[in-house]
């Protein structure tokens, strides 16, 4: 019992010690601005955020200054700038960035909402809301932008969305296992991805044939945990490929392996050993290469694709010692005497 109590106390102390590291404790004197307290006191929004409806205020944030605060708070508890503690600097920076990338005027909205700012800035009513910027769903609540959304006509509201570099809150794909997930998510919304992402971002990985190098390799100092080819990928690439047969073909063409292996001098005839285990090819039925080739034919094509296919044809052509290579589930609509690759074994040759 005493040991358990000690353990609980140690855990509590450890958690308390880690609180600031985890972001649970306060490390900065700044805090979300107390909008709710001002609303409760009957202070209207435009009392602090003056000039909202002005015609020349299109790109202004209308953030109050210390002088504005002191119109009411005539005996401040501190002589320092109010915004140093009340409100968070990074929230203001994000708001300024968003403001500079949106086509928006407060004036008409203020008139349409009859001065009710909370109708859009829903967070103003919450006690500890850090961000009051309305979400896109709030805009859609009044505006008929569904057509723009479907047409990916972002420019009607956003100024150069790609430059803003702030994924919308609904952009869930970036929060999960991006490498595995982005393909299926982008399938139905490629044009939505293109609203922010450039061609070269896709081509950096999917244009493997002509890329100057892996993006992660060229920006080697920008470390992160996610990413397919990061860290010691070169050591484990064979294991990774065997675990996901066919996945490498998403970016790499057949023959890609041998090209790289020859360049890095890790290939049969150059390297001191064959990549294949003993018994890989034998006259008996226990030959290993057949089942492995059916399991991951893309791996074979990686080295033996193209002209290297003749190595297989030598044994597996019709009447050859290797027998039929067709395994379970093989079907084809091709003409075996005329079409490639059937004619290599069934016809007169390539």
């Amino acid at each position: 019992m005493r040991a358990r109590l000690t353990l609980v106390m140690v855990l509590c102390l450890a958690l308390a010690a880690c609180a600031s590291v985890l972001g649970l404790g306060r490390t900065s004197p700044s805090r979300p601005f107390e909008h709710r307290a001002h609303v409760d006191k009957g202070v209207s929004c435009v009392q602090c955020h003056a000039g909202m409806g002005a015609a020349d205020a299109k790109l202004k944030l209308h953030l109050p200054t210390t002088a504005d605060c002191r119109r009411c708070h005539q005996k401040p508890h501190d002589e320092r700038t109010c915004s140093g503690c009340h409100g968070e600097a990074h929230v203001r920076a994000e708001t300024e960035l968003a403001r500079s990338h949106s086509r928006f005027e407060h004036g008409p909205h203020l008139r349409a909402a009859k001065g009710d700012c909370v109708r859009c800035h829903l967070g103003a009513g919450e006690a500890r809301a850090a961000v009051l910027r309305p979400s896109m769903a709030t805009c859609f609540g009044c505006h008929e932008h569904q057509g723009d959304w479907r047409a990916r006509d972002c420019d009607r509201c956003h100024v150069d969305l790609a430059r803003e570099s702030t994924p919308p809150s609904s952009h869930l794909v970036h929060e999960g296992d991006f490498v595995r997930e982005h393909g299926v998510r982008a399938a139905g919304a490629r044009d939505l991805c293109a609203a922010c992402h450039s061609e070269r971002q896709c081509a950096g990985c999917h244009g493997a044939k002509t890329a100057p190098g892996l993006p992660a390799r060229l920006r080697f100092d920008e470390i992160r945990l996610s990413g397919l080819h990061r860290a010691g990928f070169r050591s484990r690439h064979a294991e990774e490929a065997r675990a996901q047969p066919g996945m490498c073909t998403t970016c790499h063409a057949d023959g890609a392996c041998v090209e790289c292996h020859q360049r890095t001098r890790v290939a049969p005839g150059i390297a001191p050993r064959s990549p294949h285990p003993a018994g890989w090819i034998s006259a008996s039925r226990g030959s290993l290469h057949g089942p492995e080739a059916r399991r991951d034919p893309a791996a074979c094509a990686g080295c033996h694709g193209g002209a290297g296919e003749q190595l297989c044809v030598g044994c597996h052509k019709v009447g050859g010692a290797g027998g039929s290579p067709h395994g379970r589930g093989f079907t084809s609509t091709k003409d075996r005497l005329r079409d490639q690759p059937c004619r290599m074994c069934h016809g007169v040759g390539p």
Binding site: G246, T249, H326
Partner: peptide, 15 residues
Amino acid sequence: PGRLLPATSLFSVLG
């Protein structure tokens, strides 16, 4: 995997 390879590849006929 066999269907992800080009259908002109000999390794696309292994089943």
